[in-house]
Design a protein around this nucleic acid. Sequence first.
RNA 1: GGCCUGUUGGUGAAGUGGCUUAACACAUUGCCCUCUCAAGGCAACAUUCACGAGUUCGAAUCUCGUACAGGUCACCA
Length: 552
Amino acid sequence: MTNKDLADLIFPNITKTIEDYEKMYPKRKLDEEACVTRFAPSPTGYMHLGGFFQALIDFNIAKSTNGIFYLRNEDTDQKREVDKAVELIMETLKHYDIIPDEYEYKGEIVGEYGPYIQSERKEIYHTFIKYLIEIGRAYPCFCTKDEINEMRSTQEERKMRPGYYGRFARCNNMSVDEAIKRIKNNEPYVIRFRSNGDFENKIIFNDLVKGRLHLNENDIDDVIMKSDNLLPTYHFAHVVDDYLMHTTHVVRGEEWLPSVPKHIQMFEAFGFEPPKYIHTPLIVKKDGGSIRKISKRKDPEASMSYYDELGYPTLAVIESLMTIINSNYEIWHTENPDKTFLDFKFNPEKMSSSGALYDLDKLDNISKDIISKMSAEELFQKSYEWAKKYSESLTSIIEKDKKYYTSILNIEREKVKPRKDIAKYFDIENLIWYMYDDIYFSKDLEYEWQKITDKEEIKKILKTYISKYYNVESQEAWFDEVKKLAEELGYASNMKEYKNNPELFKGNVADVATVLRVALTSKSNTPDLYEIMNLFGKERVKNRYNKLIEKF
RNA sequence: GGCCUGUUGGUGAAGUGGCUUAACACAUUGCCCUCUCAAGGCAACAUUCACGAGUUCGAAUCUCGUACAGGUCACCA
């Protein structure tokens, strides 16, 4: 009996060969420098910030080189698979406008190199495994999980390197005849890769981020096909898929670095050229005194849904991540304000090789800047869309009067130095509620009076103002009147004068303006008072002042 | 424990043997501007690049050692 007999016994229905698949998936017709990248998540029901971070790099590399970015669903672990996980990933990518060129979604295959779902590629993997068995580079292993665990404990006790290698790789030396016998006897088995490496040897591996690395050669006979579902493990699927799909650059987290030697060895076993690797640093988090990988269970901000729920503009999330990807991004972006992040040339060498903390303050800052540059109309659209998904109260506010809402957003907007007080759509409601009479009067208002707190004095200021002064023709005209009002009541209208001789006055024009502001909005901090009054119109201003005077 | 990787302010970092008195941005603090706030302007914030030794006329940059941190050692990806 030969290896060929063994291979035929294990895969009796595999008739295609590797060459057949090579013909089916020929080299891509792309420019010389075009890169093919992929985002290959496993569908565990969650879109992790770290995964998105990698997808962003993939997308940037492919787009900036006129290449291809595709999505591959790595669902070989059926135990962990979660319903709707693929939808979540695809919808998240779409939300950020990171649309793969090739993918498989809801039964539709886009692209010539599919299937893009690993569980649908079983026959392909089997063909490749069959070949490996034929040439003696893979073999069935009948060791049970208990036996493997026992072996591991022994190794640990004796302080030996754990793993299925050397003399511990018991099934490696099994004769073909015996293997065939045991398979015919229906004994369960996995297929292992037969490593020809020596752990004492060093291989030199060039990672695009980390540079030249010296790694130990792999000598472990890894499982490449599982016994229960006959699907490959990650390592093997990676080799086959990235070969057939012609991936040029593999972007993945640096937790994969230790398994690089096995991947290279498997590529070599087939005589394939391995892709270029970009092992990205992990996104970490400070937890008390120590630093750890950002985690799905402990950190809400590890999930992409966090940013969507709070209403960060997608561009803000992307740009804040870009600053981690290549810290020269910010400088580049200020020099090229009209270009998008896709025009930026990602340089793996410039990527930091240590873990990065994702700074939420930085995100807020970038986000405020982006929102401040939106037109009122655009902000209206985006915030409305967000509200419909996440905030009933904001939705009802907007739907009362969309024009009015837009004009509120327009306060101190669309100018050279626009207002920057909104970091996320979630913030909006809390910044504008007092602009609505029904909400305003239904609340138990707490007036944030500052220097002037005397009720009689406040009444006097308000009464004088509404009877003599309301003028909103222009900012200057308006403020001139506030100054006149201040003078009439014994307050300084000129701040410098007041500062020089504060004892000559009851206060200054700022104190008076503050009364006008608080009486109108209940808040001491608001956008430009003139603009608010202008928006309200004289009747509403009078109404609010009169109601307050009555209450006192 | 073995192997691998990393360590420049509170944060992201620039830096590749002299042009560094360690850029830039965020955060923080102060001042200015100002009807309040947000913004904006200006300034402060690492006498020093984890520590120790070495190479050199000269080191954050090169070498070695130590410490610390992270990753990884699955029929998970």
